[in-house]
Write a protein that binds this DNA or RNA. Structure first.
Lengths: 157, 157
DNA sequence: TTGCTCCTCACGTCACGTGAGGTGGC
DNA sequence: TTGCTCCTCACGTCACGTGAGGTGGC
């Protein structure tokens, strides 16, 4: 039984909770090459500080340190973006770590092969089908509820 | 941020791994009112013994005991069936526990209201949409890979 | 001195998987 | 005595959430 991808029942792909809004103007005042704090990075990407620290503990990012305080450079932010993209595409953090390109050209992005794309598409199609079956079953239950009501009304008349 | 249902990225609804086959004949020899062991119950429903013990620890089932050995009656098996149905429909074990009807009439089944059906359908539709967005993005990456190849070929010529 | 931001443990959640070590009955 | 089945801990997995308790700099 494949554990990693299908053991949980319900949760599908997480969206980074549309958290970009009115303070984009403020953020744009920060020069892109100026390292930002964890709170700023968390706001910029719509994730919690805990999540960013967790990604670091899993060796997905390695921000600068000013004493004990973390500082996220442009490079780190590109990696965060790649991580969140990977999450949206349904990859695990371990898979994302293996696929984040850390080439010398400063390209910190997901680096998927054609085969990886196809495999992931197949995985997601399977999940989608399971969900569709579940929805169909729920609709059946919903309508059978009405039928039961009708039968009772018929029997009572 | 709603944790319970959307924190994990990928895993969707689990199918009980189509594990009914040639030994149905053997199983049918067991009288339905005769309690069966955990190994037999696990095989009958295509789950692990660990899963059945886990459901028990979460108070979803309460099989008989012959000494330390668990014995699953017809009633217990109906509850297991209801649990697995609930899992397929994307409910958590806590939700299933609250919705398993244990009425005096021996009806041990999921007991969903219309509202619960609608809410669950909406939840699954959202998950399905997230997956569809992810698949579309993966297809885009896949085709852009070809475009890059073509550009390189064009530049090289 | 008070707030605020940031820090490091460390346990909790979800649904089990995976040994480890021991027991009863054929 | 050897196998087999069943048992009970108890830690591991996945991606974080959620306090607790402490620190630096305005």
């Amino acid at each position: 039984m494949d554990h990693k991808r299908t053991s949980s029942a319900t949760s599908a792909i997480r969206l980074p909770s549309d958290a970009r809004g009115s303070d984009d103007v403020v953020l744009s005042l920060v020069r892109p090459d100026t390292p930002i704090t964890i709170a700023q990075a968390a706001r910029e990407f719509g994730v919690t500080m805990r999540a960013l620290r967790f990604y670091e503990s899993k060796r997905l990012i390695a921000p600068l340190r000013a004493g004990s305080v973390r500082l996220y450079r442009q490079e780190d932010r590109e990696r965060i973006a790649a991580i969140l993209m990977g999450r949206r595409l349904g990859f695990t953090l371990a898979e994302i770590r293996d696929r984040i390109a850390a080439r010398g050209d400063g390209n910190h992005t997901l680096d998927l092969t054609r085969e990886e794309c196809v495999a992931q598409i197949n995985l997601l199609e399977r999940q989608k089908r399971n969900i569709e079956v579940a929805i169909a079953e729920l609709r059946r239950i919903y309508t059978s509820f009405y039928r039961t009501l009708a039968e009772r009304a018929g029997a009572g008349a």
